[in-house]
């Protein structure tokens, strides 16, 4: 089955990240790199997104002109910061991969068509 793991940052996580010095950031990147290497056989695609401050939302409501606004589609404290697509046997395997994610504190696991 194909699953998408969406990585979600919280406000606190961003603050903590900004407070990190370069050595700490390098160490965090290395952990993420190791995670990708460990799961390389199941990962079919991955994307890291720019921060939500770079997002633009187009709202296509019926019969009206599209409304274009600055920011993500829901204004919230938690925003998607990237995702990977994995090919795995079942939800338990996907949850196991998600649990081992070493960076941002929330991961949404969603089956994909």
């Amino acid at each position: 089955m194909k699953y998408v793991l969406m990585f979600i940052e919280t406000e606190q996580y961003r603050k903590d990240w900004e407070a990190k010095d370069q050595a700490e950031r390098d160490a965090a990147f290395e952990k993420v790199g190791r995670w990708f290497a460990e799961h390389a056989t199941s990962i079919t695609h991955s994307t890291q997104l720019y921060p939500a401050t770079a997002a633009t939302t187009v709202r296509l409501d019926d019969g009206r002109d599209p409304i274009i606004t600055d920011g993500p589609f829901v204004e919230g404290k938690e925003v998607v910061s990237g995702y990977v697509e994995v090919e795995l046997g079942d939800l338990d395997e996907a949850l196991r991969v998600a649990r081992s994610w070493p960076a941002c504190p929330v991961v949404e696991v969603r089956p994909a068509l």
């Binding site: 046997g89 079942d90 939800l91 338990d92 696991v109 089956p111």
Partner: peptide
């Protein structure tokens, strides 16, 4: 849809 397995967990 989510592929919840039918088995005894590891």
């Amino acid at each position: 849809d989510a592929g919840i397995p039918y088995r005894i967990p590891a």
